[in-house]
């Protein structure tokens, strides 16, 4: 039995026919939509390499069945930069050496974007480390990752304030 879903991926609406209900969001992105930026690590929700934003919230795309996501919006690592201008979190990862081999990096960056949007960690390194614990880095670039998230949080702070002001206005 074939199912059809509508999914907004990085701002573009896509009609997707699914011939198999077992397809995860991760495999849909990588294998069917030709967007391999989202990485497959453990495929069991333990490493965070597959992290994307689903309706604005970070989740493990390996544990989401695509068929359940009709009408949802997904942001992947391919959707962060605006043209040649990197997202502040991407820029901060480069500035602070937040990676070595780079395989976990898309997931780290998407998780950091989600964490900053959640607004719980602020500029406390301990809270950032705790908030990023769902992303493993086998190269152990954790120091740089923490520094990058801290820096990006500060860079993005004015925009966050503006958003809050808009909300309260």
């Amino acid at each position: 039995m074939s199912h059809s879903i509508t999914l907004t991926v990085n701002g573009a609406s896509r009609e997707i026919a699914l011939d198999d209900p077992r397809v995860t969001l991760l495999d849909l992105l990588r294998e069917r939509l030709e967007m391999p930026g989202t990485k497959k690590g453990c495929d069991r929700g333990q490493c965070g390499a597959c992290t994307v934003l689903l309706d604005g919230r970070r989740v493990n795309s390996c544990l989401k069945l695509a068929i359940t996501l009709d009408g949802s919006s997904v942001t992947t690592i391919e959707g962060l930069a605006e043209g040649e201008v990197l997202h502040p979190v991407q820029a901060a990862f480069i500035d602070h050496d937040g990676f070595q081999c780079g395989y976990c990096t898309p997931g780290q960056i998407m998780s950091a974007v989600g964490l900053i949007a959640e607004g719980q960690a602020g500029d406390d390194p301990e809270r950032i480390r705790e908030g990023m614990s769902g992303n493993l880095c086998r190269c152990a670039a954790y120091h740089g990752i923490t520094e990058a998230v801290l820096d990006a949080t500060r860079r993005m702070a004015p925009a966050t304030e503006t958003a809050q002001e808009r909300k309260s206005a």
Binding site: G45, N60, G114, M132, S133, G134
Partner: peptide, 9 residues
């Protein structure tokens, strides 16, 4: 419990 990603789901 779990991670930020898992708690969101």
């Amino acid at each position: 419990g779990a991670s930020g990603q898992l708690r969101n789901a």
